[in-house]
Design a protein around this nucleic acid. Structure first.
Length: 578
RNA sequence: GGCUCGGUAACUCAGCCUGGAUAGAGUGUCAGCCUUCUAAGCUGAAAGUCGCAGGUUCGAAUCCUGUCCGGGCCA
């Protein structure tokens, strides 16, 4: 019972009316009605109205009259104004679907590539932090997106290579170093009892504040940068020490967030001088040109972009040079089919230029993509980390949210300290990840630390709660041992059951679309809608001792699997009990 | 100045790609529902010139043009 059978019925009826229409055209016209009580497929007759002189309503009625007998597999075919609505025999379909899901469990929707076949290799670079300050709310969005895109891609059969680029050199880190040298002296994260990356960030903020009055500090930072470039050993030692602190802190944050371990980590300090060969070759091939002042540039004005410097007058590289190198390096090291960069949209222009230059160089790797997300801003405006990151570092956001979650848990249950800690972290991450992923990737969003992360309504905790409720039903029924030996049968599907089945049936389509568009928000939205429908069902359709207990048990089980999969794809773990 | 992203209910957002049935959620407000599978829940109500103006179309939140406002990047 599929779309094809609907098309066939329509085509035959249209033939009778001497309306020759290709089946592809019918397929395009067919739509899924807004509400389930309007059927499973609808055929709108508007476009036919312009072909023959008849109102869409009349056409619908005439077409319906041509369908003499309702074919098997259908329950009904109705006319509703300008639409013909097709109703499948939903009872059989429901049982079939639910059984299929239960059979495949957590693999439902997953695409398995046979070992003999080569999998698509996809590299995801994320979150690529600067090493002068702790990770903040923007990185949370970055990692949530990266993690989800990775999971969606892997679920769809791709092999993921997880990469990171540490922006570990440059004036920003020298500023932290300068302030530390001046005011930190022998202090360490341990002596100050501060998480090491926060310790480094403290000096970055200190630099920003004190440099306004103390011009010497700015001079010191630049001197440190020069010395670093020339390889001064004491400066390099200080630099290594502070970066090590940053990494120590980052690792802890990644772990807490459940970010997969990076397969490869690049360091800007290793590669920032590379890429010159690429530029020289481009110059030789006439793709780049030498400007009067000696800088090597590319003119992209014809492409609607600007002139871009690739090597400065003194022959030093710029970010673009390094990125040209790294892009090619990645494809050389791994046989990539796809390579994604996850960054904020402030870098849109940079990547547009980067990709254009790669194209001009004849390096046209498939699947090179910049996945940019909108800025996360504070109610007061853009985040300026040099002015301080109080309350908006990733660690603080997790900590503050977790505190709220624990209060809620204590109100409801008596839990051991260990269980409280474990459960609250799962709920916290669900709340944060969901809040960040449900918004379209492109959109800017405002994060208000005072309001923190919500726990009711369209939120992560709501999803976990729905899952736990489903689980609770299954446990209760098991315990009561009231499982009858009756075969699973369906007497009648009520509207909640129908909607639930229908929602379950669209999971694969949603997954496909979110994979094709690399858009986790589709899955987030689906998870929420699915849970919403389940909660309605929960309230109006008791499972235990109901006439169709067996079917409802299966329906609840299927719901559990699909919700779990769906949440997994947006990086959220479930709780069997909440 | 150029490029780019956005503007939908008081607030946060979905729908726009691929035009169709009453523009949907959540929060907040108001009114109900815990002796029945977890009330982090459910039901109902109030709340919208889909930024504005044109155009295309039988039909526009959706497509096109112009324009205003905001974010970002480049210069």
């Amino acid at each position: 019972m599929t779309k094809e059978s609907v098309i066939k019925i329509l085509q035959e009826a249209l033939d009778e009316l001497d309306l020759k229409i290709k089946s592809e055209e019918i397929e395009n016209l067919l739509e899924v009605p807004k509400f389930t009580d309007m059927g499973d497929f609808a055929f709108p007759c508007f476009s036919l109205a312009s072909k023959i002189k008849m109102s869409p309503q009349e056409i619908a009625q005439n077409l319906r009259a041509e369908i003499k007998k309702i074919p098997s597999g259908f329950q009904d075919i109705q006319v509703a104004g300008p639409y013909i609505n097709f109703f499948f025999n939903r009872k059989n379909l429901s049982i079939k679907l639910v059984n299929e899901i239960i059979k495949q469990k957590d693999n439902y929707g997953k695409i398995k590539i046979p070992k003999s076949k080569k999998r698509i290799q996809t590299m995801i670079e994320c979150p690529s932090p600067n090493t002068n300050k702790p990770l903040h709310i923007g990185h949370l969005r970055n990692m949530s997106i990266g993690d989800s895109v990775a999971k969606i891609s892997a679920f769809s059969g791709e092999k993921i290579i997880w990469a990171n680029l540490n922006n570990d050199r440059g004036i920003h880190i020298c500023k932290s170093m300068a302030a530390y040298q001046k005011y930190g002296k022998t202090k360490t994260p341990k002596s100050e009892k501060i998480k090491p990356d926060h310790f480094v960030g403290k000096y970055y903020v200190m630099f920003g504040k004190r440099a306004e009055k103390n011009k010497q500090l700015e001079v010191l930072a630049h001197r440190l940068l020069q010395k670093w470039e020339s390889g001064d050993s004491s400066v390099r030692t200080l630099w290594k020490k502070m970066n090590k602190w940053a990494y120590e802190g980052f690792e802890k944050s990644y772990k807490k967030f459940n970010l997969p371990k990076h397969d490869i980590t690049y360091y800007e300090s290793d590669i920032y001088k590379k890429g010159k060969e690429i530029v020289q070759k481009g110059l030789k091939d006439g793709i780049f040109e030498k400007r009067k002042d000696g800088a090597v540039i590319i003119n992209l004005e014809k492409e609607g972009l600007d002139e871009k410097v690739l090597l400065r007058i003194d022959g030093t590289s710029v970010y673009m040079t390094t990125d040209l190198y790294l892009a090619t390096l990645k494809y050389k090291q791994y046989k990539l089919n796809k390579s994604y960069y996850i960054t904020g949209n402030e870098q849109d222009y940079h990547f547009q230029v980067l990709f254009k230059i790669l194209e001009k160089l004849g390096f046209q790797p498939e699947g090179l993509k910049h996945l940019s997300y909108g800025m996360v801003t504070l109610p007061s405006g853009k985040i300026k980390s040099r002015e301080g990151t109080k309350g908006i570092t990733m660690d603080e956001i997790i900590e503050n949210t977790q505190e709220l979650v624990q209060k809620e848990l204590i109100k409801r249950f008596k839990l051991s300290k260990k269980e409280l800690e474990k459960r609250s972290l799962v709920i916290t991450l669900a709340a944060i990840k969901y809040a960040l992923l449900k918004v379209d990737i492109k959109k800017n969003m405002i994060y208000d630390p005072k309001k923190s992360i919500a726990m009711e309504g369209d939120t992560g905790p709501y999803l976990l709660y729905s899952y736990a409720r489903a689980n609770s039903i299954l446990n209760k029924v098991m315990k009561a041992k009231k499982k009858t030996k009756n075969k699973c049968h369906v007497l009648k599907l009520n509207s909640s059951e129908t909607e639930l089945v229908q929602k379950l049936s669209t999971f694969k389509t949603v997954l496909d679309k979110s994979h094709a568009t690399l858009n986790p928000s589709l899955i987030a939205k689906y998870s929420y809608e699915l849970s919403q429908i389940f909660n309605e069902f929960y309230h109006n359709s008791p499972v235990m001792d109901s006439e169709q207990q067996e079917f409802r048990l299966k329906l609840v089980t299927a719901f559990k699997h699909v919700l779990k999969n769906s949440l997994y794809l947006i990086g959220i773990d479930v709780l069997e009990e909440m």
